[in-house]
Simulated assay, not measured.
Amino acid sequence: MAETLAIIDYGSGNLRSVEKAVERAAREAGLARHISVTDDPAIILSADRLLLPGVGAFAACMAGLKARKGVLEAIEHVALVEHRPFLGICVGMQLLASKGLEFGENDGLGWIPGEVAPFEPSTEFRAPHMGWNKVTTVSHHSVFDGLDDEVFYFAHSFHFEVENDAHNLCVARHGIEISAVVGRDNILGCQFHPEKSQRAGLAFLSNFLTWSPA
């Protein structure tokens, strides 16, 4: 039976682009995967892997996630109780934080301690961080095998400041050093958009689809 991946639909994110990218990554890697875009808690609970996309403001995305009946509880059970692989993309990564500071202070999921803060005004770089940027590994993880110093596509005005350096797996520079990939145990988040990152993005998604947390 093909392994299942649930892409969480909570009213945020370019879901179709993410779905197509994951399907292509699986196909090109020769992986049998059943991929569904869903807000059905039963489907989420039965999934082998979860992917949480996100585009927009932290508070609105968190509110949208909470508004889908049973979805947050199902995600927490799969990720925190069953310890199945989980990936958050862009704001989906930022929601892993303790809190976000966009339009006031708002609680996040709190799975990876830290806060999501704005880029400070600077004459050295522009905010938002838009476009291609090199991503460098600071702590080895199999999801980034073969991808150190590859370029990925970013689009964000806020960045994740982790409390524990051990959770900072990859970085990029945009005036300052920012977290590009964060993670612990079975939980991962990437600030870049793999679905917009062409070959490197597909390789990253393929690695996630075959990743088995220790």
Rank of each mutant, 00 (worst) to 15 (best):
A42M: 11
G100I: 04
F192R: 14
A2L: 15
L50R: 02
A26R: 13
E82F: 08
G114P: 05
L72S: 05
T210I: 10
E161I: 14
K196N: 14
E19F: 15
L72E: 15
G146T: 09
E105V: 10
D149C: 04
L147R: 06
K134M: 10
A59I: 09
F152L: 03
S139P: 00
A67L: 08
E3H: 09
E150Q: 13
R199V: 09
A59D: 14
K134D: 05
P113C: 07
V171F: 06
D148I: 05
I7Q: 11
I43D: 08
H83S: 10
R184A: 10
A214W: 05
G146L: 07
E3Q: 15
C170V: 12
F204A: 12
A200M: 06
A172P: 05
H140A: 15
F192T: 13
L109E: 12
P118A: 15
G183D: 01
C90W: 11
D185Q: 13
T210G: 07
E161S: 12
N186C: 01
V37P: 05
S212G: 00
L188D: 01
A63D: 15
E82H: 12
K99H: 03
I176E: 03
V151R: 15
L205C: 10
E73A: 14
K99V: 02
P85A: 00
T123W: 02
E28P: 01
C170N: 01
H129I: 04
N14S: 14
F154G: 13
N164Y: 04
L202I: 06
F103R: 12
S98W: 05
K99Q: 11
V37H: 08
V135G: 04
L51R: 06
D39T: 11
L80E: 06
V37L: 10
G114F: 03
D40E: 03
L5Q: 02
I43V: 14
V55H: 10
H167Y: 14
H174S: 04
A29D: 14
V162D: 05
Q94L: 14
A203C: 02
A155R: 00
E76H: 06
R49W: 02
C90T: 13
G88L: 07
S36W: 06
V135Q: 03
Q191D: 03
S122K: 10
R199S: 12
A127P: 04
A79R: 02
N164F: 03
V78C: 00
W211I: 00
L52S: 09
T136P: 02
V182W: 03
L96F: 04
H159N: 12
P118L: 11
F86E: 00
S157D: 06
E76A: 11
G100D: 05
V78M: 01
L109G: 11
A200Y: 04
E120C: 07
F192D: 13
A63W: 03
K99R: 15
H156P: 11
H174I: 06
L95P: 09
H141P: 03
R126Q: 15
G201K: 14
Y10V: 11
L65D: 12
W211F: 06
A67V: 05
D149G: 02
A172L: 07
